[in-house]
């Protein structure tokens, strides 16, 4: 799937779904921001596993990035090499108490977004 492919409906058909708590957080965030937001799955050091949430368009997407899905009307992106390296995970966007990593927006007061992984299909070596 590439950035230009058809947008799937609310994450239900994409490779990411969203919990009810995350939907509520997104609603609140959209109201507070006065505009749409985007998600980018990070990697690497420190807060590397965090989904980073930015005002829509803040993060410049490149040809190496893919659209993982649409969560509650917001696009969720990931670097395609990273997606492959991680074995094409099926993700769930959720919220939990805590401080967001990097330059990410919070998911509301004292909350942060988090991605969880659905049980992976078993790999064979």
């Amino acid at each position: 799937m590439s950035v230009s492919s058809a947008i799937v409906e609310n994450g239900t058909a994409g490779r990411i779904t969203v919990t009810r708590a995350a939907r509520r957080a997104i609603d609140t965030l959209l109201a507070a921001q006065g505009g749409p937001v985007m998600f980018v799955q990070s990697a690497g050091c420190c807060d590397g596993s965090d989904p980073m949430c930015f005002p829509n368009g803040e993060f410049l997407l490149g040809e190496g990035d893919m659209l993982v899905g649409v969560v509650h009307g917001c696009t969720f992106h990931m670097n395609a090499d990273q997606y492959e390296a991680l074995g094409r995970p099926r993700l769930v966007l959720d919220v939990e108490p805590g401080t967001p990593g990097g330059f990410s927006l919070a998911a509301g007061d004292g909350l942060r977004f988090v991605t969880r992984t659905k049980a992976p299909e078993r790999h064979t070596s």
Binding site: V40, Q41, S42, A43, G44, C45, C46, D47, G48, D50, M52, F54, E58, F59, L60, N79, Q82, G101, G102, F103
Partner: peptide
């Protein structure tokens, strides 16, 4: 990081913030 009044930025952390800083 986006400030016009800095002449260089140094960062240690994860890849998304790293890309954002480059941007």
């Amino acid at each position: 990081a986006a400030n016009k009044r800095i002449a260089k930025v140094a960062f240690t952390g994860e890849t998304t913030t790293g890309r954002l800083i480059m941007q």
